[in-house]
Amino acid sequence: MSLLDVRSVSKHFRGLRAVHEVSFDVAEGGIQGLIGPNGAGKTTTFNMIAGVYAPDTGEILFAGRAIHRLRPDEICAAGIGRTFQIVKPFAGLSVLDNVMVGAFLRERHAANARAAAAKILERLGLGAKRDLPASSLTLPDRKRLEVARALATRPKLLLLDEVMAGLRPTECDQMVAVFRELNRADGTTILLIEHVMRAVMALARQIAVLHHGALIARGTPEQVVRDPAVLECYLGEETEV
């Protein structure tokens, strides 16, 4: 059964056709990759799922419920957690407080929220930095913080927007391990936009490819990298497969 069902959604910004008639679904418990060259419409698709933009046409179902008219906070409450491609830490708050803000969605009391947040920070390897101001973190740690905050809302579906970008290969592998564990142990479904092919290939069981706002291929990683349409749109680009 699919947890997320995106049905022929389109989004135009003035004259620009950002996303056109895109359909795909994410199986419950699955890990789905969403790839494509710059400007393919990946983040726009993400933002429609997360409620930042309402699609012009089409619909989005989450666990059978239409969510494409909901606000971002309602979508988060429904069980979809997201990260931002350009990280958005609450700079003036400590690392722990950042994650507590997310944890308060499911825990009304500060003590419980603090305990939940601390546990998540340990899991992401940020435990030692919990009392530092978020503004002092390095970029890789800020990406981890994005993930930690989203996880604190206890999502059924986690939307990851380029969380591996800028990470060194070993850091990237650590993140991959964290998401695998999350998917295996907690059953969290994951939809990830990623440029780092190393991570997509290691994680995703299904991949959808966007190009110029349209879906050009879907399938397993092996199928997708052999697809002529995909090869054509990536031609001339460096892909580390």
């Binding site: 930042v52 906070d73 609450f90």
Partner: peptide, 14 residues
């Protein structure tokens, strides 16, 4: 404080 620091991120956290 989350709203003060970044309203969009706050909204994304429910």
């Amino acid at each position: 404080q989350a709203i003060r620091e970044d309203e969009e991120a706050a909204q994304a956290l429910g």
